[in-house]
Simulated assay, not measured.
Amino acid sequence: MSRSVLVTGGNRGIGLAIARAFADAGDQVAITYRSGEPPSGFFAVRCDITDAEQVEQAYKEIEDHQGPVEVLVANAGITRDQLLMRMTEEDFSAVIETNLTGTFRVVKRANRGMLRARKGRVVLISSVVGLLGSAGQANYAASKAGLVGFARSLARELGSRNITFNVVSPGFVDTDMTQALNEEQTKNILAQVPLGRYAQPDEIAATVRFLASDDASYITGAVIPVDGGLGMGH
């Protein structure tokens, strides 16, 4: 049965792969994007998740187009990497505001419809950095670690309503960001990964789609690493 799916930050990289995976399975997929031109084939809504009014308007447009959101994938996020002594208050707060508080906004709004339906699937995209840590990424790591506590609290709060909350924690993924690294940087990164390669965006997407499927109906509050073994034990 076709479901109403929303992927935030679904215009490129991991988010786009996730959106395509749901669309290929026959779901109606909406994406949000903040800048640039959205990819074709999806119902795309421009939305900055740091703005509560834009989030509300985006949901209204999506609900008018394809009904209440039944599956939410909170993927939108930013980085502002900097060593602690050089990191400004704005560097820190901007990342927290987008990655953590922005996720709170889109999840809270989606749950309005999920509570009425007494069912729903929410998947948050975190990062291996949120559990493992990374020098120069204290802001990003804090925001991504926060998603774990957020999801697990809501799993306890709303499990009785048949709404599941799970977290996918990718490692290094073959996207525009990693493709911009030089050969030495790539070599150093891959030396830390037991499987010795980057993940493909489709591998992250497959895990997300599984968590939103009936096969995962008894999984909630889980953190699923898709990181080639980089963060094992954390």
Rank of each mutant, 00 (worst) to 15 (best):
M1E: 15
M1F: 03
M1C: 05
L6P: 12
L6K: 08
V7A: 05
L16A: 13
L16S: 12
I18N: 05
I18D: 05
A19L: 06
A21Y: 04
A21P: 08
A21H: 12
F22A: 04
D27I: 02
Q28N: 09
E37K: 13
P38K: 07
P39Y: 05
F43C: 07
F43G: 03
A44T: 10
V45T: 11
V45K: 04
R46P: 13
R46K: 15
D48Q: 10
I49V: 15
D51Q: 14
E53P: 13
E53H: 13
V55I: 14
E56W: 00
E56T: 15
Q57P: 14
A58G: 12
Y59V: 15
Q66F: 00
P68M: 00
V69M: 04
V69W: 00
V73C: 03
A74K: 05
I78N: 04
L84G: 14
E90W: 01
D91H: 15
F92I: 01
I96Q: 00
E97S: 07
G102K: 04
V107G: 08
V107P: 13
R109W: 01
R112K: 15
R112E: 15
G113D: 11
M114D: 12
R116T: 03
R116W: 00
A117I: 01
K119H: 14
G120K: 06
V123C: 00
S126F: 05
S126E: 01
S127H: 12
S127I: 09
S127T: 08
L132Y: 06
G133I: 12
A138R: 10
Y140S: 03
A141V: 08
A142V: 01
S143R: 01
K144W: 07
A145P: 00
G146R: 06
G149E: 07
F150K: 09
F150P: 07
F150D: 08
A155F: 01
R156E: 12
L158D: 11
S160L: 10
R161K: 13
N162T: 09
I163N: 14
T164P: 06
P170V: 07
V173G: 04
Q179I: 00
A180V: 00
E183Y: 03
E183M: 05
A191F: 02
P194C: 02
P194L: 03
R197W: 13
R197S: 14
R197C: 14
Y198W: 12
Y198E: 05
D202A: 11
I204K: 00
A205H: 13
A206L: 02
A206C: 05
V208W: 12
S213A: 10
D215Q: 15
D215F: 10
A216G: 10
T220V: 08
P225E: 00
V226Q: 02
D227K: 02
L230C: 02
G231E: 09
G231T: 07
G233V: 11
